[in-house]
């Protein structure tokens, strides 16, 4: 890190690391959950149903499966990251 970038960061510029951007990002995420009022239990059920449904067609890595809610420009999105290990050709 050069001296200028060190000083820039030290004296606080409006970059990703500034604490107000951290605050904004944390707020966005916490409000997604608050506004939807979706409980942990519902998210867990959704996750299990996703595994059951997709599992009929594909072999997936259940331990690496991630389901989360994310705030987009004008709404909330359900993001699922589902690593596929194999496609079931038989059935």
């Amino acid at each position: 890190m050069g001296i200028v970038s060190f000083l820039t960061r030290f004296f606080g510029k409006d970059d990703e690391l500034s604490s107000k951007n951290v605050a904004k990002e944390r707020l966005r995420l916490v409000l997604v959950h608050d506004r939807l009022d979706i409980s942990e239990k519902i998210m867990e059920n959704l996750r299990e149903d996703l595994i059951a449904t997709i599992g009929k067609y594909m072999e997936i890595d259940q331990s690496a499966l991630e389901v989360s809610l994310s705030r987009e420009e004008d709404g909330v999105a359900l993001l699922a990251n589902i690593p596929i290990m194999n496609v079931r050709r038989t059935s």
Binding site: F11, G12, K13, D14, D15, S18, S19, K20, N21, A23, K24, L27, R28, L31
Partner: peptide, 16 residues
């Protein structure tokens, strides 16, 4: 603090 990026600005809050 708003100027130094350590406090959310009025616009930041209104965007949320």
């Amino acid at each position: 603090m708003v100027q130094s990026g350590d406090m959310m600005s009025v616009d930041d809050i209104l965007s949320i």
